[in-house]
Design a protein around this nucleic acid. Structure first.
Lengths: 339, 339
DNA sequence: TTGAAAGCGATACCAA
DNA sequence: TTGGTATCGCTTTCAA
């Protein structure tokens, strides 16, 4: 069933049906009613493909999805969900592109074959080839996270530097003087993941400013690596009494490692960090952490992108979020020193 | 840039370019080379939209995505990732439909506007309106999970009944005689989620068969509810020494609740269940559980769906998976009885 | 207020 | 081996 069928049955031309549907020109109440009756009777819905070809708009947004087998964080999942919902609210669908390899291939498909009107990139690196590709192609896009040249693009991001700093501040106020930082994996760090780099910056600056001993450690995105990281932290400095982490996937291992070495949380050792609320409340004791507002980020990403599609020439807008640190049960006063 | 532009530059007709691209008719090496040279020079890629309109195939698969704010399980995330990758391997993209409300609306968009060639449904209920809708519309689809009438459709599923039974068997062999079952949320159960129902069936049957005391509890999909469930379990029967759970999101709370009530795992209390491997290894002690093979399920779902698109008339094929229970550290011999 | 017809960018049939 | 052209189902301009 197509628009011609509706036109015939309603005794009008196809263009009239089209205009009745879009409302882009006025239709007499009588014909409008007649058309609507036929549409309702047949349950007609216009073909998205034909509409896209004709109008030049797919009304679809692309999302480059991290590969399976790599670790997904809860934050990512919430983010995708809210992206889909926000897009649906504006009548847009979301098309997922597999990021096999460096993610360029899937992106090329989306862009070159014109499957989507705009793209959302996540897992941003400070120096990101995908961003360069899209910018050069003049293709509309928004990033979750900033590259090293944030002014060039539109993005929504977490202020990792400030967030990690808040965690350090909290620990210092509790009397901790030897603090460890558990970062994302070596692979991600060396790939230039912006969150891993900006968090580290925040950690180092805060420690320097407060004059406390801070040691940073990379850590794989899984519990086993977290457990291992605790071993390395305590081997490097047995006097460490607290840690800050941005690695929510390793969290369970961090807790397990501390338990295995007889450090009670928060009595002997305090833990803080940045994590999805669900992870923060899943561990025992619950994690004092800045909760990643993934749902808000998804919504904002869609808004920024649709803004760009509607008015391409306004200068880039950015949204930097700094959610508060939720006080829970994993951080407490530093234990009496052995010094 | 379009196919006409390529044709003009190569000095051939548009149909020749089309055939050169698709290989559906033989082209002389000379013209083929000439066309390819122009394509390479201009970096031409055919428009997916135009191709879809003309060919009648979108080469896109639809996935009805659970709403944000609901609790995603890791299984869902891994599943989506593997679905996208498997689809990409066959040259298909994945379009996400928001499942606002009962999920019907997003699905209707996909189907009625013909945005996709086929659909994948997750979060299946025993009596699922979406399945009825697609079946009636004659739209190709595959489900992750079975409805109450499994023979009618194509699906890939976990054998929850058998899996929960395995967990009970393991506990009984360890000497446990009073076992609790922690199911998914009341909302999900009453909505008819098949995994919640089939797991319960497996639990009840196994307990009856072994002649052990089994009590089943519904539990919200979050740690706080898990903690609460432990309170209810021990209040209902303080002699309970073990539990089986299919609620991975509540797992952390289950552990916390047991710790709060002085029950050591596995010394005083054993825990087993069905969960994504990542959750099973994130808790301390690690969970003895059947690991959900989400990646395999995604791959199988795509294969089933593409099979259906290629040969619509072959009878439905089903894949029922029964992953083994991985022995980890959360289950041990029943403690000496107080009886 | 409405209709006719020219695209949009491919595919594939019919001829040559 | 190749070209011409109808077709897919819409949108939108131009006329009436």
């Amino acid at each position: 069933m197509n628009i011609g069928e509706i036109a015939r049955r309603a005794g009008v031309s196809r263009s009239t049906v089209s205009y009745a549907l879009s409302g882009k020109r006025s239709i007499s109440p009588a014909t409008r009613a007649r058309i609507q009756a036929v549409i309702d009777e047949l349950g007609y819905q216009p073909s998205a493909t034909a509409r896209a070809l004709s109008s030049g708009e797919t009304r679809t947004l692309g999302l480059v999805f991290p590969p399976a087998g790599s670790h997904y964080t809860d934050m990512q999942l919430d983010f995708i969900g809210s992206l889909v919902e926000a897009a649906a609210g504006f009548g847009y669908d979301v098309l997922l592109a597999a990021a096999v390899g460096d993610g360029q291939q899937g992106l090329r498909r989306l862009v070159a074959e014109r499957r989507v009107d705009g793209a959302v990139l996540m897992e941003i690196r400070l120096d990101d080839a995908r961003v360069d590709y899209l910018a050069e192609a003049g293709f509309p896009f928004v990033t979750i996270g900033r590259t090293g040249e944030p002014e060039r693009t539109r993005w929504v991001d977490l202020d990792y530097t400030a967030l990690v700093r808040s965690c350090v501040t909290h620990l210092v106020q509790l009397g901790h003087r030897r603090i460890a930082f558990v970062n994302r994996s070596e692979r991600l760090f060396h790939a230039g993941y912006e969150s891993a780099h900006r968090s580290l910056t925040g950690f180092e600056r805060a420690c320097a400013e407060y004059g406390v001993v801070g040691t940073a450690h990379l850590c794989g995105d899984d519990p086993a690596s977290g457990e291992d990281a605790i071993g390395r932290i305590l081997a490097a400095d047995p006097g460490t009494t607290a840690l800050v982490t941005v690695n929510e996937a390793a969290l369970g291992g961090l807790y397990r490692g501390l338990a295995a070495r007889g450090r009670a949380i928060p009595g002997d050792f305090s833990v803080t960090g940045i994590a999805a609320g669900r992870w923060a409340t899943a561990v025992t004791p619950q994690l004092t952490a800045a909760d990643v507002p993934a749902i808000e980020m998804g919504r904002v990403a869609v808004e920024l992108l649709l803004e760009l599609l509607a008015t391409p020439d306004v200068p880039p807008r950015h949204v930097l979020l700094t959610p508060p640190v939720s006080l829970r049960a994993s951080a407490g006063p530093a234990p009496a020193s052995d010094d």
